[in-house]
Design a binder for these strands. Structure first.
Lengths: 270, 270
DNA sequence: GTACAGTGTTTCTATAAAAGAAACATTGGC
DNA sequence: GCCAATGTTTCTTTTATAGAAACACTGTAC
């Protein structure tokens, strides 16, 4: 009863749409019906309706369904929302730490700064929105890479880095570094992108558990001597929780197996 | 009904979601209900269901709804679809013209080549997927810019071009050039990005009329002397129609007053 | 401080739409 | 050319939804 008054048909349809993921970019009606434990006809009608709106697509000739390009236009409209939502939290974080706070998202082959709130100090990192970086350096960029499929990261770096770049010679080491980051849930970097700059970064997950962005605190290393960055990490973690709650964390709807996302979802009215 | 067997609830819900556009990034329940001519309670339940899945989002404190970040993750999965769908058509186009065919999309501040099919000639434009260009040069890039809000284009160019760039001094001229492109529905460029290269480009619209990408033919000017590019334009136009049909063009669903979205998107504000 | 006008939310019931089984139509493989 | 499997349509029973109206909450004006 905690969640009354939903439209079951729509709820089910959206759950169905969520079955399209990286492992299953396309589905047949029968296959999907079996996977979800629903009647074929329901799945077929749901897909047909989504198809009419361009949310899914069925190539003529082939019979299976894939996600449609309507999602691309909608996403363009949704894009500013992430920054909008994160902004007040980032402002608080910047006020608490007196350092620059950055929001970074994946964009094609690289990571791009989507939003930033600058430190009040005169000596501060500027948060240049729109600036792009490759995945291999910097806490904010490595965190994003850590949650992407390795093949994607590798392809991006191969395309971006000059042939013969040392990292390309030693993929295994970098890969295990990313694995460590994903395991511990944060990244720290010292002087990686810029000399004398320390950065701590955590991933921000949207509803469904997908990593949407990384949230980072960046500042002169001299102001965070020793293990001072651990305080940043604590603050990042609580901000992460707050933002994610606002991003629409809810218990995963009916879909059976969703792989290990930490259960920090809390009811929002308290 | 030529197209029966739909889920009305889902159909209506998706139509409702489409009410969130650039002019109306946020809606209140009452307002949206009035706009769509639906009972408040239906709209509220639909929005609540979308919200649970992260498709829309309601900031705590504020009460109005905005698009949610779930769309971002879905769009990431849908991204390769455009190239997938367009590819066979592009192959045909390349075969017919013996020139390189490119698919270009907007990505942040710039246009990026999403897919390409190369000319069979030895002297050909290489279609470097992932290559980025600013909006001010090249038919494929200008076509994309022509259908973006001018403010977006201007902000992008201001951020990218070095201060003092001649174009920044004469915004009016460039703006009217874009308007002309939007009006005629295509762009042609000679030697803009590269010496001796001619390019013709048309926009590709997805369901809903939003411009999703530009489709271009690029080749050495010497092979398209005089008005030879007009043949390219004809071929582009028929390909455009074919791809768009496949992208899910359908008659706009039930929504009463979809304010004049013409068959081909026209610039959306003065 | 209290009344008020506006909002989002919940309740309730007739009705219309969806669930689900099963038949139908296509497709691709052999 | 047949067969197996897939997507599509049909059909009826069930049930979730549409819609009106009452409710609860918020900020504002008095």
């Amino acid at each position: 009863m905690a969640k009354p008054a939903l439209l079951q048909t729509l709820d089910r349809a959206l759950t169905l749409l969520a079955a399209f993921d990286r492992e299953h970019p396309e589905w047949g009606v029968t296959e999907l019906a079996h996977h979800l434990g629903l009647p074929k006809s329901v799945v077929q009608k749901t897909l047909a309706t989504f198809a009419r709106h361009g949310f899914v697509h069925q190539e003529p000739g082939r019979r299976r369904y894939r996600l449609g390009t309507r999602l691309l236009s909608l996403a363009r409209l949704a894009q500013p929302e992430l920054a909008r939502i994160a902004d007040p939290h980032m402002v608080r974080l910047a006020a608490a730490t007196k350092e620059t706070v950055k929001l970074t998202v994946v964009d094609g082959n690289q990571a791009v700064i989507a939003h930033a709130v600058e430190s009040p100090h005169s000596l501060r990192m500027t948060g240049r929105v729109g600036e792009r970086h490759d995945f291999h350096l910097g806490a904010s960029n490595k965190v994003l890479a850590a949650y992407l499929p390795w093949e994607t990261v590798w392809a991006a770096l191969s395309a971006r880095l000059p042939a013969g770049h040392p990292l390309l010679q030693d993929a295994a080491r970098f890969r295990s570094e990313l694995k460590a980051i994903a395991r511990q849930g944060y990244a720290v970097s010292h002087s990686e992108v810029e000399q004398g700059v320390t950065s701590v970064s955590v991933p921000l997950c949207g509803p469904g558990g997908e990593v949407q962005a990384s949230l980072s605190i960046v500042g002169p290393s001299l102001r965070v001597a020793g293990d001072g960055w651990r305080r940043w990490l604590d603050l990042l973690r609580s901000t992460k929780a707050a933002v994610e709650r606002e991003l629409g964390w809810e218990d995963p709807p009916s879909l059976p197996d969703r792989k290990g996302v930490p259960p920090l979802a809390v009811d929002r009215q308290a």
